[in-house]
């Protein structure tokens, strides 16, 4: 893969949240939400990021739009998030907020909860034109035209621009959120579980809309979800996360039909499928719960629940290795088995 194709290259990203306690607010612990992950997103590509709650997938998304520092002033970010905008490479992990502001329009975000992600005191027109006011020099009538055009693109009537979010249903609100993200022609849109709060019949509409928009405008998506069947459908490549680490990364159909890492295998077999004839005996049911990122097991994070765990797993954190072409897995035991 040539570097020119790459839109963003994440290298060894670590996001740690210190916890303070006691009278003097001393640091008592660290939540290692993201603990050294690397991946890249190409232009016009959709990357799926899957994992259970607490695995750090949302934090990765927020790190990519560089809003973590402003939301949590104490956060510690390490590693690099290098964007490549028209040949100019920018590291979002290091830029100061003032310098970042110029590039904000290039990376936008769609949120999970359509009820919380729109300011209830602003009309739809105000919500969508806010990024335009910040990043373009449009006058009022141009802005009005643009808002109408955007609403039309996401399947809403332009007359609805002067309504408030509470007058819309969940699916329509999510469309408004998409229009806001689309307003500044971004190169990358981070979709943080965009459909999991919606009704089943509305989910399909929103997914169709997102695929259509990608076709038309050619932006990249980072699609964060826990619903694997949706991710498999929309994503080109999938990264599976567990406790702040990527355990498997590769072409979506490869990961979906031929998972190598024991966690991916268990996760995929646990996903319910809408097929009553499916053989159920093959299902791997994992024991126990996800450990909290506050006290991660040493070495491989998955070893406490892993059916293949060996003594050596506790010693060092496994790194992603290319097991097959374009298919990276972070498990030395699987590699040994496949080799032997």
């Amino acid at each position: 893969m040539s570097d020119k194709q790459k839109l963003v290259d994440v290298k060894n990203l670590k996001v740690h949240f210190p916890l303070f306690g006691g009278v003097l607010s001393r640091r008592v612990a660290t939540v290692k939400a993201v603990d050294g992950i690397s991946f890249s997103i190409k232009r016009k590509e959709t990357i799926g990021l899957v994992g259970e709650s607490g695995c750090g997938k949302t934090t990765v998304g927020r790190a990519l739009v560089a809003i973590l520092r402003q939301l949590y002033p104490d956060v510690e970010i390490d590693g690099s998030i290098t964007y490549n905008f028209n040949g100019k490479s920018v590291d979002f992990a290091r830029l100061k907020p003032r310098e970042l502001r110029k590039y904000r329009s290039k990376v936008q975000m769609i949120f999970q909860d359509p009820f919380a992600s729109l300011n209830p005191r602003m009309t739809v027109a105000q919500i969508i034109s806010e990024p335009l006011q910040l990043h373009t020099k449009m006058n009022d009538s141009e802005m009005k035209d643009r808002v109408g055009w955007l609403l039309d693109k996401v399947g809403l009537q332009p007359e609805q621009a002067y309504r408030y979010p509470h007058e819309f249903s969940g699916g329509q609100r999510q469309r408004v959120g998409i229009a806001r993200a689309l307003a500044t022609n971004p190169d990358l849109i981070i979709c943080d579980e965009p459909v999991s709060a919606l009704d089943v019949s509305i989910q399909a509409q929103v997914i169709n809309l997102m695929m259509d928009l990608q076709e038309e405008f050619g932006m990249s998506y980072l699609f964060i979800a826990h619903d694997l069947s949706v991710v498999e459908h929309i994503a080109d490549r999938i990264a599976v996360m567990y406790l702040g680490n990527v355990v498997e990364f590769g072409e979506s159909s490869t990961v979906y039909y031929d998972p190598r890492h024991p966690y991916s295998k268990a996760l995929l077999s646990a996903v319910p499928r809408p097929d009553p004839h499916r053989q159920r005996e093959s299902r791997i049911v994992l024991e126990g719960d996800v450990p909290t990122p506050l006290n991660k097991p040493s070495g491989c994070g998955f070893r406490t629940r892993c059916p293949l765990a060996e003594k050596s797993c506790a010693e060092e954190i496994p790194v992603l290795e290319e097991h097959a072409l374009e298919h990276w897995v972070a498990c030395p035991i699987v590699k040994e088995k496949n080799a032997g």
């Binding site: 927020r62 939301l71 936008q108 975000m109 919380a116 992600s117 990043h135």
Partner: peptide, 15 residues
């Protein structure tokens, strides 16, 4: 309110 997503959206716009 700070933890609500619309604030995150405003920050991600560079407000």
């Amino acid at each position: 309110e700070k933890t609500k997503d619309y604030v995150a959206a405003a920050i991600s716009m560079g407000q």
